[in-house]
Amino acid sequence: MTDWLSFFGWSFLPSLVTNWIQNIYYRIVYRAGENIPKPGQPKHKLHQRRIYIFVVVVYLIYTIVEVIHSIPPNYYDLLGVNQDFTSKELKSNLRKLQLVFHPDRNSEQQAESNFILLRKAYDTLNDPVKRFAYDRFGPDINYWTNCKTKRDYILLGRNYSTGFYLGTGLILFILNILGKGQFGRFWRFIVFCGIACIETSLILNPQSNSSFLSYLFQNFIIFERIKIFRQLFITIFIALSQVGPVLFPTDNTQDIRSNLHNFEILCNIASDEIKNQLRSGFYPFQNDQNAQSELRKKMEKLVVDNYLHQNDHEFVQAYNQAQQRTRKKK
């Protein structure tokens, strides 16, 4: 939900705030009766471009700070220990915190849930395998009940990471086909692959990772760094796609026909894939006339039933009553 809100914000906020600031700027700078630059004039475009760049940069800084500060406390923070803690220190801090949040001693509503969370954090950090997995994949490992070894956690975590990169890569590819976000597209893919390499290095061998980003966020756990890197990639390149064309305007307008042609190719590919799926689904009935006749009757009945369910409320009510009577008889 947060990602969608951020994307929605980047879609309209910079332009909206730019127009608002530009109007206020003109009211302050230009006195009554003076010629205020009008939309379309070179001076108006120059002011609009500068204010727009300023707004995007400020919004980018705000988004980055918000991403970093939105990360919830990790298990180390909850138990008040550093990443190089000792077993004695971990157990001592747990006992102190349990005395504070024990439901018999603390009447707050969140006391019991905090007490349970503290125990879960202790069990995770006290187990070398679970701690290894938690450092790399975060609290999601609590739901990976089938994992027993470090290798199990890495393989399952790889699947989740692959899903993110395949989805993001597909979106970038589609935007490229449609001609959207063309500014810096080469470097976008280069940095995208670089982030994937850094993430792989952090998961498999974090001690050997000496990138600038890792050094900058060294106080964060590995899974927190990965989350920040992903958010920074998305946020920065959205900002660049907004500012780039303004900083470096080009007179070469792309022919919309080429974009429509590329879109048509994608639609034809999807259409052919759907046809193949339908053919494979009906292949068992190809040479069986009786099966085809029976299938045709059932499909006609299904169409009629769907129509009645969607348009005839009396039929739906009678159908539900009949279903209830059938259940009662059973």
Rank of each mutant, 00 (worst) to 15 (best):
M1H: 12
M1D: 07
T2A: 06
F7H: 04
F12W: 13
P14H: 02
V17Y: 01
V29R: 14
Y30P: 03
R31G: 15
G33R: 14
N35T: 14
P37F: 03
P37W: 01
P42F: 00
K45V: 09
Q48W: 09
Y52K: 08
I53V: 15
V55N: 00
V56P: 02
V57R: 08
V58W: 09
E66V: 12
E66W: 07
E66N: 09
H69N: 11
S70L: 09
S70C: 09
S70E: 04
I71H: 12
N74I: 11
N74Y: 13
N74D: 15
Y76W: 10
L78Q: 14
G80S: 03
G80M: 04
V81D: 00
K88I: 08
E89V: 08
N93D: 07
F101Q: 04
D104N: 15
R105M: 05
S107R: 14
A111R: 12
K120E: 05
K120Q: 08
Y122H: 05
Y122W: 03
N126L: 00
D127T: 02
P128T: 10
P128V: 06
P128K: 11
R131E: 08
A133F: 05
A133C: 01
Y134I: 09
F137H: 04
P139S: 09
D140T: 12
N142V: 05
N146M: 06
N146Q: 10
C147F: 04
K150M: 13
R151H: 05
I154H: 08
I154V: 15
L156R: 15
R158H: 05
N159G: 14
Y160W: 02
S161I: 15
F164H: 14
F164I: 15
F164Q: 13
T168I: 12
T168F: 02
I171S: 07
L175W: 06
N176I: 03
K180N: 11
G184W: 07
R185F: 07
W187P: 01
W187L: 11
F189D: 01
C193E: 00
A196P: 04
C197L: 08
E199R: 06
E199N: 07
S210M: 02
S211T: 15
S211M: 08
L216S: 09
Q218P: 02
Q218D: 10
F223C: 07
K227D: 11
R230Q: 07
L232W: 10
T235N: 10
I238G: 02
L240M: 14
L247A: 05
I256C: 01
I256H: 02
L260C: 03
F263T: 09
L266N: 02
K275N: 09
G281P: 07
P284H: 13
Q286P: 01
M299T: 13
V303Y: 00
N306Q: 08
N306C: 10
H309N: 13
D312G: 06
Q317C: 08
N320H: 10
A322Y: 00
A322F: 00
K329T: 11
